[in-house]
């Protein structure tokens, strides 16, 4: 088993802000009060990530995802606990750590706003001391996957969101970092651009064994890219396992939709009723929906049973989608904390 590249142990982060009061009177009162509110954004999180892993880090809005990423990239200092990335404590050795990481924050850009896009890359080349050969090789790769050349000479402020995002990803990868943090990299992008970005991330991971940590609200990103998933809620880690494990744990429910060739007679109706047991039946206008747990019986069995009763025109199998699973986990944790 290889060494852990990233290790977080009991990391907490608290923010202290001045207390604000509602209304105009409150605003004035706020000027004179010294009361503060402490908000725990990250609460006792521990996990370890190995080199080359692609991990989806998800949670509802405000769960503390970005805060964790910022601690791992050395911008924020944890209130307590330890965080080690590639043998360094990011916030103690920020500049050294910065050489090992690439960061994309979906809502910010690191590109040079007023200048043609190409300028940004030349600056980054100097900052990270990328050799000429490496630079050319990587730029060629980015051009290839992300199609940058069509807007290489446009000023950054004139780029569309999709173009900017692609350019930003290339900027984060130019120095071939060991770890890539992506904080909502596909926010607000169309399907084609999303696809390109995923493609680039996948190739980088395969070619350079780059470790990728990805936060997103688009679970398709996770499904296409990550092998592992960490879910946090209200600053606490609530789930950490491989994607397959997650599906096994939560994705066992399955439903099959049958459409009858012709209406059932009363005899067939009775036979359906006797099925019962592990199968939950929902009658529909022209057919029936059968819900069951995959742990108890297989799809083939269910289909065979129903086809034995009546002639079927059409069958649709619906597995639980990741979205539903995650929704269930979020809701489950809310139920626990309330």
């Amino acid at each position: 088993m290889s060494e852990n590249l990233i290790e977080l142990n009991n990391v907490c982060k608290e923010f202290v802000t001045a207390k604000h009061y509602p209304g105009f009177k409150g605003a004035v009162k706020g000027l004179f009060s010294k009361e503060t509110v402490t908000k725990t954004a990250v609460d006792d999180i521990s996990f370890a990530i190995q080199e080359g892993e692609m991990v989806g880090y998800i949670g509802s809005n405000g769960a503390g995802k970005s805060t964790t990423i910022k601690m791992m990239s050395g911008i924020l200092t944890p209130t307590s606990g330890s965080c080690v990335v590639n043998g360094l404590e990011p916030y103690r050795e920020r500049k050294k750590n910065a050489r090992n990481i690439g960061v994309v924050f979906g809502q910010r850009t690191q590109l040079w706003w007023d200048l043609p896009l190409g300028e940004t890359y030349t600056v980054l080349k100097e900052i990270y001391e990328v050799s000429k050969n490496d630079f050319e090789e990587r730029m060629a790769f980015f051009n290839d996957v992300l199609n940058l050349q069509e807007f290489m000479h446009s000023t950054v402020r004139t780029l569309s969101l999709g173009q900017r995002m692609r350019a930003d990803l290339a900027a984060a990868l130019l120095h071939n970092p060991k770890v890539l943090y992506l904080d909502e990299p596909t926010i607000g992008l169309d399907v084609v651009v999303k696809d390109r970005i995923r493609q680039a991330i996948r190739e980088i991971n395969q070619n350079y064994n780059t470790t990728v940590i990805l936060t997103t609200h688009d679970l398709n990103d996770i499904e296409e890219l990550c092998q592992r998933i960490i879910i946090i809620d209200a600053g606490k880690k609530i789930y950490d396992a491989t994607l397959d494990q997650l599906k096994c744990d939560y994705g066992d429910s399955c439903s099959v939709l049958f459409e009858w060739k012709q209406n059932l007679d009363s005899n067939q109706e009775d036979m359906l009723q006797t099925l019962g047991g592990q199968l939950v039946l929902h009658k529909q206008e022209k057919g029936i929906q059968v819900c069951f747990s995959k742990k108890e019986c297989s799809v083939a069995e269910v289909i065979a049973k129903i086809m034995g009763i009546a002639e079927v025109k059409d069958v649709q199998i619906k597995e639980t989608e990741l979205t539903d699973i995650v929704k269930r986990i979020y809701q489950g944790s809310e139920g626990k904390t309330v």
Partner: peptide, 13 residues
């Protein structure tokens, strides 16, 4: 606007 975050992720002072 929080863009100091971007500067701090670079290996520069």
């Amino acid at each position: 606007d929080g863009s100091v975050a971007m500067s701090l992720t670079k290996p520069i002072d």
